[in-house]
């Protein structure tokens, strides 16, 4: 249920049908308007086709690259280095973030340094990575890892720090060991924040793979962007941008689905279902006992 529904909900079936139609059409309205303006701009010659090709040309560039297997190759290169960099950044970030949240000593040891690194814009490290590791896969993956690390670490730390102490007390009152309290209370309780961090880290990983491929790469979608610019092919540039958008959207939707599945217990505006829909009647199930 959305906040707006909660605030201005009205029980009117006719309006509900009307709203359903609007819900389907509304998301398509803005892209269609952009396409319309795009056509109009070309038709009226506000822009030249070498600056902005027609949507049909972008589509055919896309199809042509697909047919030649070119696009698949670049997609594979970009995806594999994004996944590698993301895992290299996000996995240690979760572990270190949780460690820093659990232990004051770990936090005192790592947090000031990480906050220091955070103050530096990540792209500022590029020259250093290139100097140390050369123009190659390692420097690209490392840059992506750095980009993904920070949001995941910060969210994991905030998640563990924000765990309701009263729940931890339940574990202590019932004699659970420290390890059991960590794995069975602290980690599940901080999962929402960790998943938020993982999603933020993923979108930064996509951002950094573009940067890495723009600077130094001979394949990948970022390379395709630079190549399209160098060869005056805006249709290929736009086709690469569309491919990036698809990759980003698909990967985020996959993480989002995992998040919804893992957090289906939550009673928040984004995930909540009214009790009457999720469970026919918890009250009748217990034989009409006054709740």
């Amino acid at each position: 249920m959305r906040l707006g529904q909660l605030l201005w909900r009205r029980a009117d079936p006719a309006k509900a049908r009307h709203r359903a139609g609007v819900r389907v059409l509304l998301p398509a309205a803005l892209p269609l308007a952009v396409l319309g303006i795009w056509w109009l701009a070309l038709l009226r010659q506000w822009v030249r086709p070498y600056q902005l090709p027609a949507p049909g040309m972008v589509l055919s560039a896309f199809q042509e690259m697909l047919a030649r297997g070119e696009l698949q190759q670049h997609l594979a290169a970009t995806s594999s280095r994004t996944v590698a960099g993301y895992l290299l950044g996000a996995v240690p970030a979760v572990v270190i973030g949780i460690g820093a949240g659990l232990s004051q000593s770990v936090r005192a040891f790592v947090d000031p340094t990480i906050q220091g690194v955070r103050a530096v814009p990540s792209l500022a490290w590029v020259p250093l990575f290139l100097l140390w590791l050369g123009i190659g896969e390692r420097s690209r993956v490392l840059l992506i890892a750095l980009g993904a690390f920070l949001p995941v670490y910060l969210n994991a730390l905030a998640g563990v720090e924000g765990v309701d102490r009263r729940l931890v007390e339940v574990g202590r009152a019932y004699g659970l060991s420290g390890a059991a309290i960590t794995t069975r209370i602290v980690l599940p309780a901080s999962l929402p924040a960790i998943l938020t961090g993982l999603r933020a880290g993923l979108s930064l990983a996509w951002m950094f793979v573009v940067a890495a491929e723009l600077i130094a790469a001979s394949n990948g979608l970022g390379f395709l962007l630079v190549d399209g610019q160098a060869t005056m092919r805006p249709d290929r540039v736009l086709a690469s941008i569309v491919a990036f958008a698809l990759l980003g959207r698909i990967s985020d939707a996959a993480l989002g689905a995992i998040e919804r599945r893992a957090l289906r217990w939550r009673d928040s505006l984004g995930t909540a279902e009214p009790p009457d829909r999720t469970h026919p009647s918890p009250l009748s199930a217990e034989g009409g006992v006054t709740p």
Binding site: W265, T278, H279, P282, E286, G287, T290, P291
Partner: peptide
């Protein structure tokens, strides 16, 4: 605690009294 029908539902779907009875069941089970 007369909550046998509620085993599979989430805590957020319980009323205050039912939630407290669950807490009582959690205490009794030990």
């Amino acid at each position: 605690v007369r909550l046998e029908g509620c085993a599979r539902i989430w805590p957020r779907q319980l009323s205050g009294g039912m939630a407290q009875r669950t807490a009582l069941a959690r205490a009794l089970v030990t």
